[in-house]
Design a protein around this nucleic acid. Sequence first.
DNA 1: GGCAGCATAGTTAACGTTTTCTACACGGAG
DNA 2: CTCCGTGTAGAAAACGTTAACTATGCTGCC
Lengths: 356, 356
Amino acid sequence: MANSSRRKSSSSPTLADVAAHAGVSPATVSRVLAGNYPVSRSANQRVLRSIRELNYSANTHARALAGVQTKTIAFILADVRGQSFADAAHGVEQEASRRGWLSLIGTTQGDSERELALVQLMREQRAGAVILIGGVTNEAADYRAKMTDLARSLHSAGSLLVLCGRPPLGDDVPTAVIEYDNEQGAYAMTSHLLSQGHRRTLFLAGPERQSTSMQRLAGHRRALHDFGVPDAPELVEHGVFTRASGYQLTKNRLAAGQDFTAVFAATDVVAAGVYAAAAEFDLRVPEDLSVVGYDDVELAQDLRPRLTSVHVPYEELGRAAAKIALDSQHQQPDWTGAHRLFTTHVVVRNSVTRRD
Amino acid sequence: MANSSRRKSSSSPTLADVAAHAGVSPATVSRVLAGNYPVSRSANQRVLRSIRELNYSANTHARALAGVQTKTIAFILADVRGQSFADAAHGVEQEASRRGWLSLIGTTQGDSERELALVQLMREQRAGAVILIGGVTNEAADYRAKMTDLARSLHSAGSLLVLCGRPPLGDDVPTAVIEYDNEQGAYAMTSHLLSQGHRRTLFLAGPERQSTSMQRLAGHRRALHDFGVPDAPELVEHGVFTRASGYQLTKNRLAAGQDFTAVFAATDVVAAGVYAAAAEFDLRVPEDLSVVGYDDVELAQDLRPRLTSVHVPYEELGRAAAKIALDSQHQQPDWTGAHRLFTTHVVVRNSVTRRD
DNA sequence: GGCAGCATAGTTAACGTTTTCTACACGGAG
DNA sequence: CTCCGTGTAGAAAACGTTAACTATGCTGCC
């Protein structure tokens, strides 16, 4: 009495199955579901009951194919384990779910090839918007060209590419950009260090070709220059944004003999590594070594001494990105890209001491 | 010369557009893409060139509708910001991408309604597998029934529901289960505390109806019982798995007068909150108050003193879940559910002192 | 020299929705 | 008593792929 199709007895029921079960046409079922067309009370109830009895759920792909927009927003980041990006992801998620959108997270592990592939994938999936969070690792012309193409094709498909915490692709590329002042934050932090008398600061940067890393380093250098402190290339080390990296780099430096009074870690978790290395060499923070970080994640308050850091409003950044992406849905197709810049500021805690 | 369709001049090019541009039939283009059928050298090249020139990308929805399996694995967790789940997510991601699958993360914020909706959504999206990580918040019959239905319908669609770190739904429900010994870990930790002479331990549990929280509490109670320590309901507080919760709960307790020598926090980040509260009352850890946590995330090593915690192999958990989910793809449809149990163990650091 | 077999190519029917178009009663107004 | 909205229903055409059929020259074998 129930299903007449034999071949797919084990597959999910389709709209046609529901229609047959309820004794109406497929169109009527679709209408009950959409609720955008008058359907008689009795038909409505029968359909609803059949849906429940057959445990029917619509096939999103068919639905998408028929032209219904998939309310999906994608955001792509390097690694979920980084507290800062997780915060941003949370912001995106929050804003998206508030509007009834589904959000998907994809991770690149810092690989720009994988990043391109993911954006491409999201374009194929017809995501309503794609948000890219975090610095760019690859500034090769080839990469830029490909990403530009993707931005254009996303845009022409009614979607939008949002660049969050990374440099724009160019004025003629249809993207929205959300930035925070990386360079300025580092400038302020280094100024703070200098004002406390630190003339030799070890800067633990991120990867050498990573935009976030380079911007922070640039801010640091500019402050040094403005304060008339000569550039000391030997006081810059490149690593990755992990605790292990901070630990290893610091340990190596300390083993080679300490010739700096402070360490500026590119990230709070890197700073945690610095703390660990310092402890191993029986160096007290901040008495023997001052340490500062960047991002101001929760961890900064749990380290002892509490870590002086640069605050970045990651969650808000994510929320703003989602907001722009979602708002663009109702805009004209010729909508011109938004550009927002968030500010950063130094949060002073107890990890820096005065030196003379 | 290029596109003849006018209505959709701004939309993405379709396979038919490519075919027209290359002067071949749609089928040939599809074959070039799939590479599962002989195509002449010349046709192949023309198609490839047209694809590049038109910047074509296949519509996943149409593809999925035509029966091609979407290589997508979904994993659903409460909150990306939790370090432990992020680790698990990383494990899943790692394993999935290793096999060329895309993984999507969805978050529930601990809301079981949202969890059901997400699984439903993933079922609609025809995900190859759905992994649920973390404890269940709702044990209502209604919830169980719905999740059971979803598991069945996922299974009958050739997909699989993997329950990770949460109790099974029942023997007759087609799911795979990955667990870790929550109860045993808590038992071991409380035993450790008792062996150090702590007779009054404040247990900071998670939400009252949360399986992980309840299992840890059960282990704690069993140890108490086995050591002949009378049950003290006033020494159990329920909160959530955040630093703020641990901080507030401990502060309240401390303000009311300390009648315990140790705190067992349900989670490392909760323990971080305990540290903060203790510091505010000028209590030294562990001299004045011993503290232990659960999960053994990176943070445990950054707290001072270093936190004694129960190690849970989250990343491995995630990897195992993905492995089972992906392996099931090649299995018989009547494949019976796997069940794996990971063990946990106490990692002793410096946050507990002896009491007599 | 007819014909099986093979390498290519095109036709066409799914796949499961949504969304026009039609279709048909049923009232009430002229 | 016709005619026209109006409320409700079904038929059928998209949507963009894939895959199962056909269709066509060839090559080479009896």
